[in-house]
């Protein structure tokens, strides 16, 4: 049976921390909303199961999902192709030939800047075919962009 092997490289281990920080911010926001609406504004009574539900969600969102995500996320760029694997519950593997690359984007959010990480996005002529690598080490991301740009320039045609 023909199968796809997984891409060669993991993303930077700090990506796990980045996803955890992002999720923690969300959980803190939810907890604040819960406290404000029930205790401060007194819109409803705070029952025991409400914080329990939130705690369960927090454990999954902060403790479990980022770890799972880090185990899935992988990437590889060869002479001819870019190949990524993302997701956690639903996994997605994307393949695109270097010759069909249209743009190579590099971006960095506030959390990424704090941790020294960056994202690289490769787009093709298909709106459904963009390849995104999140949580790369900043220097790795920069050299990857430089490399891809040179290779894409070398390819002939208009990449449709």
């Amino acid at each position: 049976m023909t199968t796809l092997r997984r891409p060669a490289h993991r993303v930077d281990p700090r990506a796990r921390l980045m996803w955890q920080l992002g999720a923690a911010t969300e959980v803190v926001g939810l907890a604040t909303a819960l406290v404000v609406t029930s205790l401060v504004l007194d819109l409803y009574d705070l029952r025991w199961w409400m914080p329990a539900l939130l705690a369960t969600y927090a454990v999954g969102r902060v403790g479990l999902v980022p770890v799972w995500r880090y185990r899935v996320h992988r990437w590889e760029v060869t002479e001819h192709a870019a190949y990524t694997q993302t997701g956690w519950w639903a996994r997605e593997r994307r393949l695109a030939p270097i010759s069909r690359i249209q743009t190579v984007d590099w971006d960095q959010g506030p959390l990424e800047r704090l941790l020294g990480l960056a994202n690289v996005t490769i787009t093709t002529a298909s709106a459904a075919g963009a390849i995104a690598i999140a949580g790369l080490d900043q220097a790795t991301a920069e050299s990857l962009v430089a490399e891809l740009t040179v290779r894409a320039d070398a390819a002939p045609g208009d990449a449709t």
Binding site: A90, R91, R94, L95, A96, R100, S126
Partner: peptide, 29 residues
Amino acid sequence: IGWTVRDTWFQRRQGLVTLDATTAGGRQR
């Protein structure tokens, strides 16, 4: 232009994938 291979946890257990051939026309895939 490229390929997208998607599988949820259930699909992985069943050995199935949903395969997209991406293209620049129509619905893009």
